[in-house]
Design a protein around this nucleic acid. Structure first.
Lengths: 159, 159
DNA sequence: CCTCCTCTCGTAATAATTACGATTTAGTAA
DNA sequence: TTACTAAATCGTAATTATTACGAGAGGAGG
């Protein structure tokens, strides 16, 4: 299957998702996805805007950002790297990794020898030389989980 | 060794680094590092500013941001998550990971079964439930490496 | 074709981070 | 200690990515 075909398949699948979920399958959305699906280089929003504009000259920044968020929410595309808006810092200089709560942003350190010395796949050695590993486990922390339970379980306790 | 002692050790080490590298060991820098080293919660710049202000009321935002960058450059602290300023997107929905060039920002995809199904350390299970793994290998890509070679090797070629 | 509701456009607002010019301070050596 | 100088800080303004908003356009179903 050629790249062009792959792209069209992804686009078609997205159009389907739209119909099923009552979301409008607009020209702009289609072109944004088409652009992204046909690219290997993980472009940023501005780059995508520039490229899509060649085909849809009047498209706006807002639309691009909104669409990218939409596609991300539907699981059609992914955001690379940290999803947080503000930088967070860490004074722990020992080699370690992080657990991040996607609900409240809590970050915990942990140690894993195995993750430190991950064997580098050949694929990667061909891209360049690896100098560091960044591992982030993502999930829901204890506190948020308990909070969620309580909220669900609202069945008659007094305020 | 108590936490307080650890913190002071880190601070002392930093003051040493300053002297050796001709960087000034200011009160503000010391307090920022002291705050960060004594914290387990990976605070953001604003939080650090607020806390340090209790002890150094006139400290400015600029100083905090500048100092954090300095400490990061010296390897005294680390930034959690992505270091990039703009979001990057990825339409590859297959389970995969990324290689990122810290020089030019190039991003490449790769696949690793081993990394996908990594056993979650007990430490982490105690923090919460893990729902996803994000792995990023960082280094220098082929292209940047070649460029660096050429630049180094400037020994007599004409412009 | 018509209506409704969602989506888009253009631009303004927001929020994190960085830059700037005047002033202060650490480091150093007399 | 004092004096000197480069570097750092302060307060604020500028910059940059991203999000919000109001008016109008367009897709989907009747």
């Amino acid at each position: 299957m050629t790249l062009r075909e792959k792209v069209e398949k992804r686009v078609a699948a997205f159009l389907d998702t739209c119909r099923r979920q009552g979301v409008k399958a607009t020209h702009q959305r289609t072109e944004i996805l088409r652009e992204l699906a046909g690219s290997e280089e993980h472009p940023d929003a501005e780059t995508i805007l520039g490229r899509v504009r060649r085909r849809v000259p009047a498209i706006s920044v807002d639309t691009v950002y909104r669409t990218l968020r939409l596609l991300e929410d539907k699981g059609v595309i992914a955001r690379v790297g940290s999803m947080r808006d503000r930088a967070r810092f860490d004074a722990n200089t020992d080699r370690h990794h992080h657990f991040v709560c996607t609900e409240c942003g809590m970050i915990g350190d942990f140690y894993s020898d195995a993750m430190d010395r991950f064997p580098v796949p050949r694929e990667v050695s061909e891209m360049g030389s690896v100098e560091g590993v960044y591992v982030e486990l993502r999930g829901i922390c204890r506190k948020c989980k308990q909070k969620a339970m309580k909220t669900e379980g609202r069945t008659g306790e007094q305020p």
